[in-house]
Design a protein around this nucleic acid. Structure first.
Lengths: 152, 152
DNA sequence: CTGGATGCAAACAATTTGCAAATTC
DNA sequence: GAATTTGCAAATTGTTTGCATCCAG
């Protein structure tokens, strides 16, 4: 368990959850993957490593991890649910471009960070007016990708 | 059909879709509703008006309306899919605060608009670097709502 | 030890598909 | 008139629940 993983485990424990074998395997998979993953993606990734975690367990684990603030749920297209590790570092933050025709998702992070001062301001307003403790945000752009805009 | 509706219909036709009775009924329901609606919400709303559109048709219609750029899909929590009319006017645009524990969604629009100049800049960068034609965006904040942050 | 976590099988819910009839352009 | 669209029923997919067993703290 590397430094990052141990920090995760600690936070998780503090939130009242147990760091079990299954959950460790799930987090390991995330630390080796970059993009968002669906429950099924996680299931297969664990399997690929020669290990096994029941699909039901994965459903329940990601749920806990989201509640604990370790993963975020990204629901980008048609009710398909993905999960990704919340990375507080600017470099780790990324957003999405989604094509409304072919449903392709493009991650981008190359200019992430530019919006931060602005987002902070919105965050302050939102926290105050709604008594909401904000700890994450997502921006997604929708439109047409290169292929679909060209009369496709 | 009011002015707004006729504009919608025209755009829809231009995109190669037919403006059928079923689709008109669906759009009518949207013009009378404020928040996002699920397929089921739409189904029930149509029924409530004494009319009828099959649920399968609604699934297919919202799909077309999304592709045509008239509705946007908002997938905020756990794979639950909602739809809302894309309103280009600032006053119609709104974003969401989502509680990661209880999954409550709060719409906000009171300070929407403040982010626009900034978003425009991000949009420009994204369009250029990815050859993506962007026509909509969504910002969502995640965190804990008043109740859940209080040790709930 | 004790309550939370696991994982199988079964239940459930949401969405999609096939197809004949109806409708739009 | 040709091509879409509709809507039913059936198939499919994704997710949750019940429950006995297991494990982390």
């Amino acid at each position: 368990m590397d430094a990052k993983a141990s920090v995760l485990a600690k936070n998780f424990g503090a939130a009242g959850y147990r760091m079990t074998k299954a959950r460790k395997k799930i987090l390991a998979v995330f630390s080796e993957a970059f993009r968002h993953m669906s429950v099924d993606d996680i299931y297969l990734a664990v399997k690929k490593k020669g290990e096994h975690v029941g699909i039901t367990t994965i459903y329940r684990a990601v749920d806990s991890l989201v509640k604990a603030g370790i993963l975020r749920q990204v629901s980008l297209i048609k009710g398909r649910v993905f999960y990704e590790v919340i990375d507080k570092r600017v470099s780790g933050h990324h957003h999405h471009l989604i094509c409304r025709k072919c449903q392709k998702i493009i991650d981008y992070s190359d200019f992430v960070g530019k919006e931060i001062p602005h987002i902070k301001r919105l965050e302050n307003i939102a926290s105050k007016t709604r008594e909401f403790l904000i700890d994450d945000y997502q921006i997604s752009f929708t439109g047409l990708c290169k292929l679909c805009k060209g009369g496709g």
